Computed example of a mutant assay.
Amino acid sequence: MSKLNILFVCGAGLGSSFAAQMSTEDVLNKLGVEAKLDHVDISSAVSMNPDVIITAENFRSQFEKFNIDPATSIVYLKNIVSKPEIEEKITPVLQDKGAI
């Protein structure tokens, strides 16, 4: 399988999405998963087709209004830098996508 494309999303595409990306990178390294990581603002994310979107729980209502490709898995985090939460929520997604 080719590398997973994981997109981190926040309001401006800078601060919290990048913080989540750095924490997730540590989790992926621990799990031995290689992925292409990028971070963007929420309006840009709609036009992209990543394998996985990782975002904060407070963006759930906005994502529910968008027409996101059903093949894209969305992971909502309560604490965007919590490595235990990221690992708990991303592991089943990675298994489903055949990455682990």
Rank of each mutant, 00 (worst) to 15 (best):
M1W: 11
S2F: 10
S2E: 15
K3I: 14
K3Q: 14
K3P: 13
N5L: 11
N5M: 10
I6S: 03
I6Q: 04
I6A: 08
L7V: 08
L7Y: 00
L7I: 07
F8I: 13
V9A: 06
V9C: 04
V9K: 05
C10F: 02
G11W: 02
G11F: 02
G11T: 04
A12C: 14
A12M: 10
G15E: 06
S16D: 05
S17T: 09
F18L: 14
F18E: 01
A19P: 05
A19N: 06
A20N: 03
A20P: 06
M22D: 02
M22P: 00
S23F: 05
T24M: 06
E25N: 11
D26A: 14
V27Y: 05
L28M: 02
L28K: 04
N29R: 15
K30W: 02
K30H: 03
L31Y: 11
L31N: 08
L31R: 07
G32W: 15
G32L: 14
V33W: 12
E34K: 14
E34F: 05
E34S: 13
K36W: 00
K36V: 15
K36C: 11
L37N: 03
L37P: 07
D38C: 09
H39S: 13
V40F: 09
D41V: 10
S43L: 15
S44R: 14
S44E: 14
A45M: 06
S47V: 12
S47M: 12
N49M: 10
D51P: 05
D51I: 02
D51L: 03
V52C: 08
V52Q: 02
I54P: 04
T55K: 01
T55P: 01
T55S: 07
A56F: 06
A56C: 04
A56K: 09
N58C: 12
N58L: 11
F59Y: 13
F59R: 07
F59Q: 12
R60H: 07
S61I: 13
Q62S: 15
Q62N: 12
F63K: 00
E64Q: 12
E64S: 13
K65V: 07
K65T: 09
K65E: 09
K65I: 10
F66M: 13
N67R: 14
N67T: 09
I68Q: 01
I68G: 04
D69H: 03
D69M: 03
P70V: 10
P70H: 01
S73Y: 10
S73W: 05
S73L: 04
S73K: 08
I74P: 01
I74E: 00
V75S: 05
V75E: 00
V75L: 07
V75A: 06
Y76F: 08
Y76T: 00
L77E: 01
K78S: 11
N79M: 14
I80F: 09
I80L: 12
S82D: 08
S82K: 12
S82I: 13
P84K: 04
P84N: 02
P84Q: 09
E85A: 06
E85R: 00
E85V: 08
I86T: 07
E87D: 08
E87S: 06
E88M: 13
E88H: 08
K89Y: 03
I90M: 04
T91P: 09
T91G: 02
T91H: 01
P92S: 09
P92M: 05
V93I: 15
V93E: 07
L94R: 03
L94W: 01
Q95V: 15
Q95N: 13
D96V: 13
G98M: 11
G98E: 08
G98P: 09
A99P: 02
I100G: 10
I100Y: 07
I100S: 09
I100H: 10
